[in-house]
């Protein structure tokens, strides 16, 4: 077995074994009841509540010497909290990390699903701020538990339809509710609705951890996940009129980057690994030079100017 270097003051993966068992039991039940929120004895973690402690606890209960961990926030590996969480696991587990989506066995994410389709055997761990999709309709946990117990989801449909009446669209662009396995309405976490279709029938296992709210839920591979919609107003995802300014992708979620203070902007992939991969394969967006001037990208090692 590979011997790993991890902080000797803490158990491998930070959590004690009893806590890991408790989380593992919750995970198996979560997988057995797709989309249902299992309460768990969420521990105090050395990172702040609301900063990914649910995802961190799941990853800590999963991770082993053979894993390769990728951590993303807003789709990117280099956002501050992703860096912080990756450093935490490097310290307490010594496990190898990667930025390459297809190399990772565990991907912990906040607010995105990677663009590259995930495979069987991979595990996607979502950080969840608010696990309860009905919370905005009903603040009381006692009541929302009952609504899930009896599958009383009419109020959710009413809310979505009110949006359509007022704005012509469902005015929810992220955390867009889904129905899992035709039974539980579930929050997909604040991923953009662009990512919702990726959840449906995904070959990878999806696990969700809400540390502050003390809930774990899951979607097994190859499970039906349907975004709530109406026959006359089918679910649609966001689209952009222009491709990624850096890699020319037309199939990825784009972030807006402000380039000056008089309305200049460009759109770039939020999934940094996907974007880099495409650039490495020679896909060149039309504003790469602008991005370089803004220090948004760099000509990496071995880069040639005519790339």
């Amino acid at each position: 077995m590979t011997m790993l270097q991890h902080d000797p003051d803490y158990n491998f993966g930070y959590l004690d074994e009893q806590t890991k068992r408790m989380i593992r039991r919750a995970l198996l039940k979560a997988v057995a009841i797709p989309g249902y929120q299992v309460p768990f004895g969420s521990r105090e973690m050395p990172l702040a509540r609301g900063w990914g402690t649910g995802g961190i606890q799941i990853t800590a209960a999963l991770i082993g010497p053979e894993d390769r961990l990728k951590v993303i926030d807003q789709g990117a590996d280099d956002t501050t909290n992703a860096v912080s969480i990756r450093r935490f696991f490097a310290r307490v587990s010594g496990v190898a990390t990667t930025e390459e989506t297809s190399e990772a066995s565990i991907i912990q994410t906040r607010h995105r699903i990677p663009e590259k389709p995930l495979d069987e055997g991979q595990i996607l761990v979502y950080q969840v701020p608010q696990p309860e999709p009905l919370r905005k309709l009903e603040p009381s946990e006692v009541e929302t538990r009952k609504m899930h117990a009896w599958a009383e989801y009419g109020a959710m449909h009413v809310r979505l339809y009110e949006d359509i009446a007022r704005f012509g669209h469902v005015a929810t662009t992220y955390s867009y509710p889904v129905m899992v396995n035709d039974r539980y309405v579930m929050s997909p976490t604040p991923i953009p609705k662009f990512d919702n279709p990726k959840m449906d029938d995904m070959p990878a296992l999806q696990l969700f951890g809400a540390g502050r709210e003390k809930r774990i839920y899951a979607i097994p591979p190859y499970t039906k996940v349907k975004s709530l919609d109406f026959e006359d107003h089918p679910f649609t995802i966001q689209s952009w009129t222009e491709p990624c300014a850096l890699c020319a992708a037309t199939d990825s979620y784009l972030d807006e980057v402000i380039t000056d203070d008089h309305g200049g902007r460009m759109f770039v992939c939020s999934d940094s690994s996907y974007c880099e991969d495409r650039r490495a394969k020679g896909h060149i967006g039309k504003e790469l030079a602008v991005a370089e001037a803004l220090d948004y990208v760099d000509r990496g090692e071995g880069a040639s100017h005519d790339a």
Partner: peptide
């Protein structure tokens, strides 16, 4: 923490 992915959705 960054929320620009969600914010982009709202903006759009």
């Amino acid at each position: 923490l960054p929320h620009y992915v969600d914010f982009q959705g709202e903006l759009e």
